[in-house]
């Protein structure tokens, strides 16, 4: 069976992969772990804050607030950005979030659809295999200037870049997932009277969806990377735009504040997706003990 199955090689992530530490409940002994984590963070920030206030370190090491800012300044800047007014972060954050969400949605939907479709047709999977593999191995970042030229300075090029980053990841995982359905299961459904299309909807697509979900945490960070990159290259809004402006004005505090905001966005989106996954894939043995 393996000889006539088409091999589309890609960086797929197995749906059965069990490590999902970010969604594991804090149980007994969890408090000690949390406290230790807080302690490590506090020490790191404290050292950073203290060293940038000592003149010798400022002059002889990288602990110069001009280059690496300091936690209190970064915190103050984020606070300042959160206040309404012309310096508020909200329009930029909204712009980045909107483009990321849209890119993620379009990328996941198209990757899923193409993945399921190609898994249905051995002929087209074989025909398209070399194109997909070579497209995937191209450095996608190199396309960002071209995408900007084609789609202009704004939402469209951000979404297209995010889509371009997400599509292949989701596609490969879905394709593998749809092909992972065992022949016995398909034959069994045939004896139950299932037609090809019925087996597709009730067996292949749910199996593939589990694999698609496994790819989503990575897809989120890919989408975010795509949007920020597009904002670097050509945009007048977004957190990526704030970063390039900060570079132009050599403002390390703004840069760190932007990075913190972006990280929070990424973590928030991953939590959101795991919550959806828990609801939709509650039947999966992966969540059995939750």
């Amino acid at each position: 069976m393996s000889s006539d199955q088409v091999q589309i090689a890609g960086p797929e992530i197995s749906a059965g992969r069990a490590s999902r530490t970010q969604s594991r409940r804090r149980s007994a002994g969890g408090l000690r772990i949390t406290l230790t984590q807080v302690l490590i963070l506090a020490v790191a920030l404290g050292v950073w804050e203290a060293l940038t206030r000592i003149t010798w370190f400022q002059q002889n090491t990288i602990f110069d607030p001009f280059f690496i800012s300091r936690p209190s300044l970064i915190g103050a800047r984020i606070w300042q950005w959160m206040q309404p007014g012309k310096n508020a972060i909200w329009p930029h954050l909204a712009s980045t979030l909107y483009a990321t969400g849209l890119g993620l949605l379009v990328g996941t939907a198209s990757g899923f659809a193409v993945g399921v479709m190609l898994a249905q047709s051995r002929f087209w999977a074989k025909v398209l295999n070399p194109f997909i593999v070579s497209m995937n191995s191209m450095p996608r970042i190199a396309f960002v200037p071209l995408i900007t030229m084609l789609f202009g300075l704004g939402l469209a090029s951000k979404v297209v870049t995010a889509w371009f980053m997400v599509f292949f990841l989701v596609f490969f995982n879905t394709y593998k997932g749809a092909n992972s359905v065992e022949q016995e299961l398909v034959n069994f459904c045939r004896t139950l009277g299932g037609r090809r299309s019925q087996i597709l909807w009730r067996v292949r697509i749910p199996t593939a969806a589990a694999w698609t979900f496994a790819a989503l945490p990575n897809a989120i960070s890919f989408a975010l990377i795509g949007v920020v990159l597009a904002e670097f290259v050509g945009s007048t809004t977004g957190v990526g735009y704030l970063l390039t402006t900060a570079l132009a004005t050599l403002n390390a505090t703004d840069m760190f504040a932007s990075i913190v905001i972006l990280s929070l966005v990424g973590v928030g989106l991953v939590y959101l997706i795991s919550a959806i996954e828990r609801r939709l894939l509650h039947w999966s043995s992966e969540f059995r003990n939750d």
Binding site: F188, L192, G193
Partner: peptide, 27 residues
């Protein structure tokens, strides 16, 4: 004709009731 395989052929995303009703749904 019905066929029972050695491998597990129960669909994990359906309840027992939904699984048993699958063939009837197909029809």
């Amino acid at each position: 004709l019905g066929y029972i395989f050695q491998k597990d052929t129960v669909l994990p995303w359906y309840t027992v009731r939904q699984n048993v009703g699958l063939g009837l749904k197909f029809a």
